[in-house]
Amino acid sequence: MRRESLQAWLLLLPALVLLVAFTHWPAATTIIDSFYTTPKGSRPPRFVGIENYADLMSDPVFWTALTNNAIYAVWTIPVSVILALVMALAVNTAMPGRALVRMAYFTPTMLPMIAVANIWLFFYTPDYGLFDHILSWFGGGRHNWLGDRATALPAMIAVAVWKEAGFFMIFYLAALQAMPPDLKECAALEGSSRWNFFRRVTIPLLMPTTLFVLVNAVINAFRLVDHVVVMTRGGPDNATTLLLYYIYEAGFRFWDQALAATLTVVLLGLLGLLAWLQFGVLGKRVHYR
């Protein structure tokens, strides 16, 4: 028994060391750093208690970033998840060109977000871009999609939905294909309408998949800011600054370690809270087979 214990720990060691060194350790040092000032030149960091957090509370950019991220999440998550379900239902039935349609839905997923951002940057360009082009057919005028505070964030949301929906579709498709076909026959015998079947049988059976997809969608809404870096750099006037982008700016453009650390702690707290909500609250209501 002793020996097996020792062997097990030896097998675990490399993975555990790397995992702790580059996930738990930086998380811990970041929390500590958030209570200190930024070291400047020869001046070492000084303990300031919760001063950084107080500063953050009165930082308007932080509130803008938080609000933006909330709006971004509230739109991208449901829209991409619902679209994914619609796509999966569509390609789960026999129809002409099914393989092509499925490929069309899934392909954006294989592109790097950077590539996606470059392509869409072009669409959003005033005058030349695809959008202004299409609008001009209907008599629309030029519009600076990414330069206008009102349309910049929705433009980011559209990019994220386009990239992610196809990815989530895969998981729904897998779940739909695993559903026993006799359920459908049963429902047909009982004279249940398609909508009823969808609402009473399909949706509940898909709940575990929905939970999985939701977890991923939530993480991505806070983790993926590549398109912001390329398309808007958080502008105009912070209209597209998301939390992680603000962390990147604070840490690597302003070199303000205290601000970056404090922001990271807030983001970690938020992710923890969301994990607890999803697994603790939502997870209990999901019926696994």
Partner: peptide, 30 residues
Amino acid sequence: EFAGRNVVFAIMLMQLMIMPDVLLVGNYRS
């Protein structure tokens, strides 16, 4: 079988939610 298996497993799984992508600042310092 080894002592502390479940605890270590739980500690490890934390990375599924808190990914290295978010820990730019700490990892850069390391």
